[in-house]
Computed example of a mutant assay.
Amino acid sequence: MQEILINKLNAFRVLYAEDEDGIRENINEILEHYFKETYTAKNANDAYLKYVQNKPDLIITDIQMGNENGLDLIRRIRESDSKTRIIITSAFTDLDYMLQATELHLIKYIVKPITHDKLINALEAFIKSYDDNKIYNLNEKWLFDFSKSIITNDEEQFDLTKKEALFLKQLLTKDRIITYEEMENLIWDEDSVMTPNAMRLFIKNFRKKLPEKSLKNIQGTGYRLVRG
């Protein structure tokens, strides 16, 4: 489970805001092990600037940072961004704080101290928030994010066309040969024709974005995915 979680988290970027140096450094060490990119901030203003600069997929922020309030930071972000996932950490268990936090569409509310188990549970909730039909492992190093239409590995990111993303999702979810007829119905609309040349060009471009030898042609039938 831990290895699967690491593989999935490695496609994402996280921003961690915490005013206590020791806590920030310790938790950041853990986050660096899991995430593609990690950013840290000492206060709410610094966090907002780094959010604007880096557009992280996940923000983990303390509620109280000196005289600044993490909830105000989240409200500011939510004015224009409803998609970035947010986890709150706090020493407070006050019901009012929790109700305010709930209204801001958070993934998790972690009560300090932040233990490894609490953090892992929150990160699992973050992955689950994309739902099981959005993120797929192609192999140990490669991930497909259907919601963003991208394939990533340790070194590269490939943007998929709408047709490529739909085709790849079919290959993954059905886990069998996708026939030429299914391909025509799925990725060629009624205004276009799946000519042999169009098919060859589509497959040629599609293969360049996949792990080597992962797309197998079943002669006369269609294609299937070979996952490492």
Score class of each variant (00 low, 15 high):
Ala47Phe: 02
Lys208Val: 07
Thr89Ile: 10
Ile127Ser: 04
Ile6Met: 07
Leu168Tyr: 10
Arg75Glu: 12
Lys36Pro: 00
Thr93Ile: 07
Ile187Met: 07
Lys83Ile: 02
Tyr51Ile: 13
Asn205Gly: 11
Ile74Trp: 05
Glu103Phe: 02
Thr84Arg: 00
Met65Phe: 09
Ala11Arg: 10
Asp191Cys: 01
Leu186Gln: 00
Ser80Phe: 15
Asn26Ile: 14
Ile23Leu: 15
Ala17Phe: 12
Phe92Ala: 09
Phe92Asn: 09
Arg176Cys: 08
Asp117Ile: 11
Asp96Leu: 08
Leu215Ala: 05
Val14Arg: 04
Met194Thr: 01
Glu3Tyr: 05
Leu143Ile: 15
Ile110Cys: 12
Tyr39Met: 03
Ala47Gln: 13
Met98Gln: 15
Thr173Leu: 05
Glu68Phe: 07
Leu201Cys: 08
Asn217Gly: 00
Lys163Pro: 00
Glu103Arg: 13
Leu172Cys: 02
Leu5Ala: 03
Leu210Glu: 12
Trp142Ala: 11
Leu201Val: 09
Ser192Tyr: 06
Lys50Glu: 00
Ala198Trp: 06
Leu215Pro: 10
Gln219Thr: 12
Thr38Ser: 13
Gln64Pro: 04
Ser90Asn: 06
Asn10Met: 07
Asn205Ser: 12
Asp191His: 07
Asn45Glu: 09
Ile187His: 09
Leu119Trp: 02
Asn133Arg: 10
Ile107Ser: 02
Met1Leu: 04
Lys50Asn: 07
Phe206Tyr: 13
Ile6Gln: 06
Ile59Lys: 01
Arg75Ser: 06
Asn28Ser: 15
Met199Gly: 00
Ile4Thr: 11
Ile6Tyr: 00
Ile6Ala: 10
Met1Lys: 02
Glu37Gly: 01
Glu181Ile: 10
Asn45Gly: 04
Gly228Arg: 10
Arg227Glu: 03
Gly222Met: 08
Asp96Arg: 13
Ser82Ala: 13
Asn28Glu: 10
Arg224Ser: 08
Ala41Phe: 09
Asn45Ala: 03
Ser82Cys: 04
Met65His: 10
Ala122Cys: 08
Thr161Cys: 13
Asp94Asn: 14
Leu171Ala: 03
Asn28Pro: 00
Pro196Glu: 01
Leu171Tyr: 00
Phe35Lys: 03
Ile23Ser: 10
Ile30Asp: 15
Lys204Ser: 14
Ser192Ala: 08
Ala17Leu: 09
Leu104Tyr: 01
Met183Arg: 00
Leu95Gln: 08
Asp117Phe: 06
Leu99His: 14
Ser129Ile: 06
Met98Phe: 07
His105Glu: 15
Asn139Trp: 06
Val111Lys: 14
Gly66Ser: 04
Gln2His: 02
Tyr130Asn: 08
Ser129Trp: 02
Arg85Leu: 12
Lys174Met: 14
His116Arg: 05
Asn26Cys: 10
Ser129Asp: 08
Asp46Glu: 15
Asp117Gly: 05
Thr221Pro: 00
Ile30Met: 12
Lys112Gly: 12
Lys209His: 08
Asp159Arg: 14
Ile107Tyr: 02
Asn45Ile: 11
Asp46Cys: 08
Ser149Gly: 12
Lys42Glu: 00
